[in-house]
């Protein structure tokens, strides 16, 4: 997948959150976004996901205009802010619900991805009883479940211990190897440096390398 961001400006409540951003992102690459709180990193990810629309400018996914030709990127995995799953369901049941939508993956993959993120397929605990770290792990599992072509991850290391951070690093690199375009926003600059092919700074609405 190739993403082209062309002169995108986003104004929210009279505030210029993103200002005339243009860049091109190619598949099989990890792009890191760094910036202070409120700099517009999450907004940029939301724009790429098609969840919000640019005030001006355009975003193209493989030449198709987001919000006009397509509502959302065709094959996207997303982890934005806090992971959101159904409280009354187990980890496996939540992933099963997601997998059931496009039916691209089978039960074996659910088991595999839960193992990869360090959760148990047979765990009978409901999501609402999960710790923050477990929720984050499940969020990552949900995002990579179908090996999406576009992976948008916000603060992947939140609530994770050192082992968890290593696990995320390995998984994202694995997805990159499979050809995914990964965009991740993170406060942890050393993590970004280790994993990213390109690092962009988001500052006062501008995005630059």
């Amino acid at each position: 997948m190739k993403i082209e961001v062309v002169n995108v400006t986003k104004i929210l409540r009279k505030c210029r959150v993103l200002d005339d951003v243009s860049l091109v992102m190619e598949q099989g690459t990890i792009y890191g976004l760094k910036g202070i709180n409120g700099s517009g990193k999450t907004m940029f990810l939301r724009l790429l996901a098609g969840l919000i629309y640019p005030s001006s400018g355009s975003i193209f996914c493989d030449g198709k205009k987001l919000g006009k030709d397509i509502s959302f990127p065709p094959d996207v995995g997303l982890l934005l802010e806090a992971p959101a799953f159904l409280d009354e369901f187990t980890a496996a049941a939540n992933l099963r619900l997601l997998a059931n939508i496009r039916q691209k993956v089978r039960e074996m993959r659910i088991k595999e991805v839960l193992d990869q993120v360090g959760l148990s397929y047979t765990d009978t605990r409901k999501y609402r009883h999960f710790s923050l770290g477990m929720k984050q792990r499940l969020g990552i599992a949900g995002a990579i479940l179908e090996h999406p072509q576009l992976l948008l991850i916000d603060e992947p290391t939140n609530a994770l211990d050192t082992k968890g951070v290593e696990m995320v690093k390995e998984l994202l690199l694995e997805e990159k190897e499979k050809g995914a375009l990964v965009v991740l926003a993170c406060h942890d600059f050393s993590f970004l440096e280790e994993i990213s092919d390109y690092i962009y700074t988001v500052q006062e609405g501008k995005v630059f390398q």
Binding site: V76, L78, A84, N94
Partner: peptide, 15 residues
């Protein structure tokens, strides 16, 4: 819309 439904919507490809 702000939680699980957002994932479902994204995977479905339309609003």
């Amino acid at each position: 819309l702000l939680g699980f439904g957002k994932h479902v919507m994204l995977l479905s490809g339309n609003r």
